[in-house]
Design a protein around this nucleic acid. Sequence first.
DNA 1: CTCACTGCAAAGGTTTTGCAGTGGG
DNA 2: CCCACTGCAAAACCTTTGCAGTGAG
Lengths: 141, 141
Amino acid sequence: MERTIEQIRNKLSEKGLKVTPQRIAILDAIYRIGSHPTADIIIEYIRRSNPNIASGTVYKVLDTLIENKLVKRVTTDRDVMRYDGNMEKHHHLYCVECDVIEDYVDDELDELLKNYFENKNIKGFHIKEFVLQIKGTFNKC
Amino acid sequence: MERTIEQIRNKLSEKGLKVTPQRIAILDAIYRIGSHPTADIIIEYIRRSNPNIASGTVYKVLDTLIENKLVKRVTTDRDVMRYDGNMEKHHHLYCVECDVIEDYVDDELDELLKNYFENKNIKGFHIKEFVLQIKGTFNKC
DNA sequence: CTCACTGCAAAGGTTTTGCAGTGGG
DNA sequence: CCCACTGCAAAACCTTTGCAGTGAG
């Protein structure tokens, strides 16, 4: 995944979005922070270099980025939303100790699930996507 | 899963919890509503027969039930929490159209995943549990 | 230039907290 | 009886919204 400022500008304009400093900063923050940050962590991160960004703006931009498939929400069983800038097909490792969420990419697994459910045919339901949460602990925890 | 009032009383006292009318009502509501309700739906449901229950109480009781493994949080990418009274190992079908979440029990799938990851051995991570979200649409949607 | 975007501040919705009073064991 | 639990109300949070002003194309 390419992530220089120039490449962020390109991603935005490819989607027909105006390339504003705020949008660049938010995408850049998500990429740099890496660990599926909350809106609040993104806001704090950006304010270090750009103290004037409004939190309302961050939420609006995140919605826009999600609509335009540049960012995904990460599902958790907490009530604070977390965001993910990796748009490749992947799953997540959830640490139940420290709340860290790490990407887990595994094409073989996707193939396995796809095949399994093709034969399974759940009645009355049409599958679009799988999201596997792998919960456990990192050794360092 | 047994769910009469008497059985609910037993579940509570087995965990060493005081058997209060509020706790019974909340567990009973979750079982009866079935469809992974929000706290708000639980509160409305209970108030029909017990108008005096405080919403703070419901949240406190839900936390207690979760700590004592009588209820689980359901993972979603929304900011409202949903609750699940089915403590058997199972996964969920998520309808992206109508927000319905339905239980999906499949021991064969659990076996498949268990075996797959036993050989896989993710470095630095110790797996405790899998949660598979199966996203799609019900035919009626 | 113009319309989409931002900043600001207020409002909305959900969940948590503190405390006095109650009731289950 | 006593301590855990409940009701009530306020507060804390996170997120959304409205609007006037700004700036990207």
